[in-house]
Design a protein around this nucleic acid. Structure first.
Lengths: 120, 120
DNA sequence: GGCTATTACTTCCCTTTGGGAAGCATCTAG
DNA sequence: CTAGATGCTTCCCAAAGGGAAGTAATAGCC
């Protein structure tokens, strides 16, 4: 008998179930900035400033928020090198590399199909 | 010479460029409710009420907003059957079916990997 | 010593978006 | 003539998004 993921543990999980923790994770991952940050980190560990330059138009506040949430959930590692000036590197974890694939597929789809999408 | 998508037309598009219309599309598609709506519609055309029941916890307002935006951009068709009681069907367009694949990959990844993700 | 530069953030503040509760419009059946 | 079904819309508040400016630590330069 399936419990549709209400208790969490070893049942099948279902993003369509309101109480499934899937929902929170989907909300974190299915976001513009998350998709861009994870994509940028696919090229290897990067520093805050580098990410800021690559993700054109991102404010430091939003970038920090995004990175912190990804770190909390275990998608990204944050390493501080207390050199001077301060040096902080962000890198994908194993989990982060895993989710990078579906996110890359989504970004790629958007770039390939943009011309067919009605502009609003 | 590449223009990095600033003018739109037939250059390569780049989601990392601030002015690329890709950004808006990515923002629409990379959203919790979009991923769930498109996924539900993969099973065939469905009515407002059916969608509301499948996407547990969605409010009618948010569902309407999501469907309208997807319709505007050409991912979803809205058909009204003026029978009584009123009958409205939502269906994926060709474009919608296309993007359903990467979105399904993302949802599937979340369901398969939930147990490895740090709960916060 | 004082000034500037660098890196990585915070903080402030305002606008936009998200989201629940409740109301509305239309028509039928009882 | 009231109740029920369907597909919304409106209201309101709280949460999130996002830009501008400020902060902290230290090094190097004059």
């Amino acid at each position: 008998m399936s419990m549709r993921c209400t208790t969490g543990r070893h049942d099948k999980h279902d993003v369509y179930a309101a109480q499934c923790p899937c929902r929170g994770v989907l909300d974190l991952l299915a976001s513009k900035w998350t998709a861009l940050v994870i994509g940028a980190l696919e090229d290897g560990p990067q520093r805050f400033g580098e990410l800021q330059r690559r993700l054109e138009g991102v404010s430091p506040k939003v970038l920090t928020q995004t990175l912190r949430r990804l770190e909390e959930s275990g998608f990204v590692d944050r390493t501080v090198y207390p050199a001077v000036p301060l040096h902080v590197e962000y890198a994908l974890t194993g989990l982060g590399s895993g989710v990078a694939e579906p996110l890359a597929a989504l970004r790629g789809w958007v770039e390939r199909n943009l011309d067919d999408i009605r502009r609003v």
